[in-house]
Design a protein around this nucleic acid. Sequence first.
DNA 1: ACCTGAACACCGTTCAAGT
DNA 2: ACCTGAACACCGTTCAAGT
Lengths: 229, 229
Amino acid sequence: MPAGVDDAPAVRRSPGRPPIASARIVDAALQVIDEQGLDSLSMRSLAKHLNSSTATLYRHFPTRAALVQGVIDRVMGEVDVDAANFRALTWRQGCEKISLDIFEAFGRHRQTALLLADHTPIGPNAAAVRERTLAVLIDGGFDVKVAARTGAMLAHLILGFASQYGGERETTAADRETFRKAIHGMDLSQFPATAAVRRARWLPTTVDQEFQFALQLLLDGLGLMRSGG
Amino acid sequence: MPAGVDDAPAVRRSPGRPPIASARIVDAALQVIDEQGLDSLSMRSLAKHLNSSTATLYRHFPTRAALVQGVIDRVMGEVDVDAANFRALTWRQGCEKISLDIFEAFGRHRQTALLLADHTPIGPNAAAVRERTLAVLIDGGFDVKVAARTGAMLAHLILGFASQYGGERETTAADRETFRKAIHGMDLSQFPATAAVRRARWLPTTVDQEFQFALQLLLDGLGLMRSGG
DNA sequence: ACCTGAACACCGTTCAAGT
DNA sequence: ACCTGAACACCGTTCAAGT
């Protein structure tokens, strides 16, 4: 149950009305995205889903982008940042755990991953995730500046890979067709490596598998660096 | 000068009209994106830019997404895939060269990088880049299947990082404000690692620097793997 | 004080009508 | 055969008008 935006101090509220809370709006938005797809989320459709009007939404978020940031932070809230669950882990295990946790959170809400190209996470839950990442690295013996650099790099790696979830769908048959001719028209003998891969019957892997591959190699490299490579 | 879509066989054309070519449309689209920003590219604005009409654009591309794919492939066309320029390089140097080349191409057209989340490159130039990457790895002694896996992973790494170019701008002051309170309201003493980084006066790095950092670590890891780690 | 319908200035896409 | 203006069904955002 992640913290929302204006309902963080859930108690002391301007008296009278109950907190119809931005969190409710964000939850509804995420629900629409998960169930009907990102394209189905408009201020109008969301307002209708809440039996409200678009202008009311704008009293909680100054713009659609701000609402989207709320949704992203809602997803970030699903990441485990409890210090207790990291205490027994090495820096490498800790990095692996939180990285996979973030990636899996956006894997559970694949349509929101598309938003990551336009919107760098800036919410409080993102800040908590960042804190945990930095703590894992610093506690693991990394120099503070190196830890900061590494944490920022890891964040881009994770969110960058997650944003690639989108490419798996989205391109319609008609769009592929636009290029099919051009590609089939190419001299395949000039593409020996591609042909070799085809002959080896290599099956394309999923974004998940490729992320794990990249993460392991990168952690290997980090280990090398830390031990003074 | 990258190959376009329907003007690849530039000579043998249905007689009469000159090839008003999809390539011209794509060039104009990229120009609009570079000069006025991605948000300024609409079928209407592009049509006006070409002294044409939207319906005419649809005679060249079945949908806006297909046109966008054309733009992406146009950028991919700026990547050096000439075999001669790779002959003298080790697999690691070759990987580094093509990876940076791709990343820099989208760095020169930052606004197009935003498109990478929604649209996995599928054009002929993307195919040529893929071929060169695979060739570098296979010629470098990688097993064909491992090379395929590695090439796919590298592609996601590069495009994922490139797609993060977008987050640098886009979030407006008003949107950040939505979260400023919530974050400042947080107990900063509960964020010791973040505080330590702030004390160390660490300056945030650019996406470019972080990509290079990640790429080097990853290549280190690959080297380890190749030498039977 | 809070909420609403309607308006404004846009979209992508399609199609009847023109030359 | 090729192109066009206008239409259709949407957008995000704003604002006068209601209670």
